[in-house]
């Protein structure tokens, strides 16, 4: 029989919904960047949709991260010293490099217009791909090394976190490509990473009692309904069946992004509210709490602004390049 708590003390989640938004945005940006690198370097395709997603999601990711710091004005402290033993410190370098390199790549792509890709742009594409790997590695590593959080401190968590980032990157690319009336590059990656996610999550669930407790007792709707069904199974089925339909591709992509959000929401909040010292749960943050809605609205607004900025940057520079060529 368990101990009865006559007097107990609860703790709040210290990483707030802004952290969920950051990990979703930067993960999606990194996923799209890898898709971009693969498409450009292996398949010799332009992959403009993936470039727009990589640059705009990367650009939008910085502010939610700052918002999650309780002392955002002190962000310079990351750069005024060194802490190579901390994965977060490495991330503080990878993130600005990733943002700047993707924006620079968007600038170079727009400026050349319809001309073929030069060696410099090819090199920058490789750098963007490498930085995307660093982003995925640091975000997954930063959380999975925390031994005090058993849901994160597993092999399954970083694997699924990375797979959902790739899936979300492919999904967001499919949305942009559908809006541009193009088939694009994301469908195959979404299907492969979605299937891999199902396998990885299934194995993780079977082997980790902490995850099964979280999924069964505290986040069944988020993990089973939002993530697995709506966020993985449905988008994979739609992507497989949507060979020609741009609408279905767009819907599939949107659901894949939602799946990545649902996974992060459930495992970030859920794990933080699972007590480290007792078999207890520190209350429930409603999915539509004021804080969550503020984060959702703020991140969506930032993302829309970033998308407009990056799209305008590429297109206006391309028009200018075209005029110069004609002249």
């Amino acid at each position: 029989m368990p101990a009865v708590d006559l007097m107990s003390f609860d703790h709040e989640a210290v990483w707030r919904p802004w952290a969920v938004a950051y990990f979703l945005l930067v993960g999606t940006g990194a996923g799209a960047a890898l898709l971009l690198a693969y498409a450009r370097l292996v398949r010799i395709a332009e992959a403009k949709g993936a470039l727009i997603v990589a640059a705009s999601f990367a650009l939008a990711s910085g502010l939610p991260l700052l918002a999650d710091l309780h002392q955002p004005a002190r962000f310079m402290h990351f750069y005024l010293g060194s802490a190579p033993g901390s994965i977060m410190w490495w991330g503080s370098w990878f993130l600005p490099l990733f943002i700047v390199s993707t924006l620079l790549l968007a600038f170079m792509t727009g400026r050349r217009g319809n001309a073929p890709m030069c060696g410099g742009e090819r090199m920058l594409t490789m750098i963007v791909g490498a930085l995307a790997l660093c982003i995925l590695g640091y975000t997954a590593g930063e959380m999975s090394v925390v031994a005090a959080r058993p849901v994160w401190n597993t092999l399954g968590f970083p694997v699924v976190l990375i797979l959902t980032a790739l899936m979300s990157g492919a999904g967001a690319t499919m949305i942009i490509d559908s809006l541009n009336g193009e088939k694009g590059e994301g469908r195959y990656m979404l299907v492969v990473t979605g299937a891999a996610t199902l396998v990885a999550f299934g194995l993780w669930m079977l082997t980790d009692t902490n995850l099964s407790t979280l999924a069964a007792d505290y986040a069944p709707v988020g993990l089973f309904g939002g993530f697995i069904i709506a966020g993985v199974v449905v988008p994979v089925v739609l992507a497989v069946s949507a060979k020609a339909s741009l609408l279905l591709r767009g819907v599939s992509g949107a659901l894949a992004v939602f799946g990545a959000l649902a996974f992060r929401w459930s495992t970030f909040n859920g794990a933080q509210l699972m007590s480290k010292t007792e078999t207890a749960f520190y209350g429930h943050e409603a999915a539509l709490s004021q804080d969550a809605l503020r984060t959702l609205a703020g991140s969506a607004g930032l993302l829309i602004l970033s998308l407009i900025f990056v799209t305008l940057l590429i297109n206006l520079l391309a028009v200018r390049a075209s005029k110069q060529t004609q002249a």
Binding site: P2, A3, V4, D5, L6, M7, S8, D10, S275, K276, T277, E278, T279, A280
Partner: peptide, 10 residues
């Protein structure tokens, strides 16, 4: 270690 707890104040 982790205290198996339940049925009380929380």
């Amino acid at each position: 270690s982790t205290v198996a707890v339940g049925g009380g104040a929380r």
